[in-house]
């Protein structure tokens, strides 16, 4: 049965491709989150005043806060559409376990939306007054952070599946778990700007992303199975 060995990765790749194209096209796709992110950032100088000293001091922290909020936007659609269309009936009859299906959906969402927000983060931070040489480290941190946000968000989305208008519920469920990456991420930037070593904050940020990657699929798989019964 040589075909059987290939069935898993083959199916996984096709699901990832499908979800990525859906996350890029449907409902405004990444533009919605990117637009929200940029608008939120543009409001900061308007609300705090244009003093560049103040802005550059709060830039890293506020950028992380806005990244977390922008990551929330598309979560409601993550499983809801396929749930309503009945697509899970096909997915469950394929070779992939529910945990892998959920993880792939989160990763597709992250590649389509979270990664774009992460790429924008250094620019936004620099525009607000952070030094240019912090761009690289802030990009790395934002990539790790948005990955954690995507998977933790996926847990919230799977738990609220089947409740009508679960968006606010997802935000309530998920935001407390967005706190650690926000603390580590903003702390990392603060440490970098003050010249302190960044290794500690970066390792904690990485650890949280790996933690989400390891436990997220199990939680999402269980939540989806119970929602689909």
């Amino acid at each position: 049965m040589s075909t059987k060995i290939n069935a898993g990765p083959h199916a996984a790749l096709s699901l990832l491709k499908r979800d990525l194209s859906l996350s890029l096209t449907r409902g405004g796709g990444p533009l919605l989150a990117v637009g929200f992110y940029l608008t939120l950032m543009a409001m900061i100088p308007l609300s705090l005043g244009s003093d560049s000293g103040t802005l550059s001091r709060v830039a890293p922290g506020l950028t992380w806060l806005c990244l977390a909020l922008a990551s929330l936007l598309s979560l409601e659609r993550l499983f809801e559409r396929d749930y309503e269309d009945g697509l899970f009936d096909i997915l469950r009859l394929g070779p992939l376990p529910m945990e892998v299906i959920a993880l792939l959906k989160c990763l597709a969402q992250w590649l389509g939306t979270g990664l774009m927000l992460a790429v924008l983060t250094p620019f936004v931070m620099i525009i607000l007054g952070a030094p240019v040489d912090a761009a690289f480290i802030s990009l790395i941190a934002a990539i790790l952070g948005s990955l954690s946000f995507a998977i933790i968000g996926g847990i919230g989305a799977s738990l609220s599946l089947g409740t009508r208008k679960g968006g606010v519920l997802i935000a309530l469920l998920v935001l407390p778990f967005y706190v650690p990456p926000v603390i580590f991420g903003a702390g990392l930037m603060q440490a970098y700007l003050t010249g302190a070593p960044v290794v500690q904050a970066l390792s904690l940020l990485t650890a949280y992303a790996l933690f989400a990657l390891a436990l997220g699929p199990i939680a999402m798989g269980a939540a989806l199975k119970s929602a689909l019964n």
Binding site: L22, T25, R26, R81, D85, G86, L87, D89, G94, P95
Partner: peptide
């Protein structure tokens, strides 16, 4: 995962594809 087809009420098609 290998022997069953299920065709339900819902046609399992994404509307935008």
């Amino acid at each position: 995962t290998e022997l069953i087809h299920y065709l339900g009420h819902q046609d399992a098609l994404s509307p935008t594809r």
